[in-house]
Write a protein that binds this DNA or RNA. Sequence first.
DNA 1: GCAGTTTACCAAAGCGCTTTGGATTTTGCA
DNA 2: TGCAAAATCCAAAGCGCTTTGGTAAACTGC
Lengths: 355, 355
Amino acid sequence: MKSKKMNLKDLSEALGLSQTTVSRALNGYPEVRESTRQKVLEAAEAYDYAPNTRAKTLATGHSMAIGHVLPLSKKHEMVNPIFADFIAGAGEIYSDNGYDLLLSVVDDQDEESSYRKLVSRGAVDGLIVHGPKVRDRRIALLQGLGVPFVVHGRSSDVIEDYSWVDVNNKRAFQRATEFLLDLGHRRIALLNGLADMDFATRRGAGYKAALAARGIQADQSLMFHDEMTENYGYEVCNRSLAMDKPPTAFVVSSIIPAIGVRRALAEAGLQMGRDVSVVIHDDALSYFGNVGEVPEFTAVRSSVREAGRRVAQGLISMIQTPGTVLHQEMMEAALTVGQSTGQAPALREVLERDD
Amino acid sequence: MKSKKMNLKDLSEALGLSQTTVSRALNGYPEVRESTRQKVLEAAEAYDYAPNTRAKTLATGHSMAIGHVLPLSKKHEMVNPIFADFIAGAGEIYSDNGYDLLLSVVDDQDEESSYRKLVSRGAVDGLIVHGPKVRDRRIALLQGLGVPFVVHGRSSDVIEDYSWVDVNNKRAFQRATEFLLDLGHRRIALLNGLADMDFATRRGAGYKAALAARGIQADQSLMFHDEMTENYGYEVCNRSLAMDKPPTAFVVSSIIPAIGVRRALAEAGLQMGRDVSVVIHDDALSYFGNVGEVPEFTAVRSSVREAGRRVAQGLISMIQTPGTVLHQEMMEAALTVGQSTGQAPALREVLERDD
DNA sequence: GCAGTTTACCAAAGCGCTTTGGATTTTGCA
DNA sequence: TGCAAAATCCAAAGCGCTTTGGTAAACTGC
């Protein structure tokens, strides 16, 4: 093992150079001879030296860290399953650019003060806002704090102009619903996320727009809002099937509740894709590969990992570009046809009668 | 908005006190009058002052951050679904104790150098090791670096004594297997994790031990290793059912592949719990609540979120206790009977004949 | 062979905090 | 009332780095 932990002073003394020169050699400044730089780099390698992050960030004024706040409510207790994939995507970009990822897990009541503290402590150079709600107050807060930030998603009814990366949720759900309508479905249930989440609003709007375009009035009893657990899908599906006029199709906001829907259908002896159709929004979670030539679920698909990458990239360029440029990026979701959809039973009957 | 960002100097000048006194007042030292402390705290609140983290950590020598390294291989590309819940648990503890969580997403080839750099950069006071493999080299590495760390899991064939928090995987899988044997199952498949993961080895050992105790030779063709995706469960189940003598039961290492198993069984027209039995290891993921009086799956259950809490707590006490105490903690998994298990078909036949 | 550049290096200030070692004031008690 | 002890407060050094404002040596071109 190499003796004890080295600092710049030790290293420069060992090399017989000044701290200035060593620092410059390591940071790639031009005013140092190439042969000297080589020597410095070799010595740094040999002594396993890396500049102390805390000292470096103090001296430069940049923390070289991006903050993510993960709020956990005591009630719901749920960790959003897309979080890990998103973080993985963002983290790749951070690594490539020399940024650290600072994750703050807080009680959701303390979320605002948590952002505030992160900034006044100077712990981060920028922030990511997860899961924006309608009229999300965090946007005004962060803008007031004057810290660069990018929202994963958008927030309706917010006047300020801010940076975001979002999926075109409205369009995706409109297409998903249209697709089912084209197959003859008329009673289509929507299993949405929590009602105060902004993405849920947009998805609901897309769903309603598709129905309206065919002159169909959205049925409130077919629109559900909750946290997207497997059990949510299971229970809502069971309840729906018990209705006088059960839906023939489901649009489901995530693959997780869709799995619950599949479970409920199977228990009811119904075949997905034949008796009941299901279209999901697929975040392309790494452990639920809804892939293949004909994937299990018909889906509007958009990789949340890719979203993480883009959010991170957007934030970093905002931080590094002095002029305050906004980064706004819309991702479109691809509609892929899988096994979970088919003609509405009623329509099929009609068509079969013609045969 | 309160003017510009304050520092200790500004605050102390505004108060007409020295930086020393203000610092002491904020940090709860006794050598400051109580009335003075109140004034300082109020002013800090009013000016929205929080000591600069980077300066503070530089001065104290403690980074007040814990490092987590999330390796992502280009091949697998999978983010372990338990990661988010684990992080959430650990994060709670960090927040309570004033630590930040530093997450480093790295290509798995760079993992070791990533640990090394995190330490030599002085970016963290301690580290968590995720997903230990058999003979995991990271343990010796971190021990060599002399940094406090706790492993989530253990690593076999490692000589060094190190800190860990683990589930009694062997016992859990032994019990799961015994439970199935008691129900008359004799051909029991094991859907394990990747073969080089230490937990997989232990789970395999528990499974084999249970079989051996009944004089049954483990059948290699019934033991599977892979990343625990939904699709893995689906495909292995399909393959198993196509065997000459298909298994009557499955022990599955996670709820995710178990969902794939369920899918395959449903497609084959088999009823889980009657035709085929399934016991899972349930990490108690927040979005897959395998709960209720009679949960969907019979399971050996152990909350990974709780594991996160304990790992974090263990590491923090190691850091704060000068004497190098090891933190070793074993968690037992509870066996809960759900709907996914029942008597082996053969046994049931015999018993029904007796009626 | 010399003034003017360039090149290659360095000493020291400063980032914002904690903490050591004193200085000054209050208090306690004979 | 007087004096040691306790209670408060402060100036300045340092944490390990970057960066400003140099200086000395090596090149230019004429």
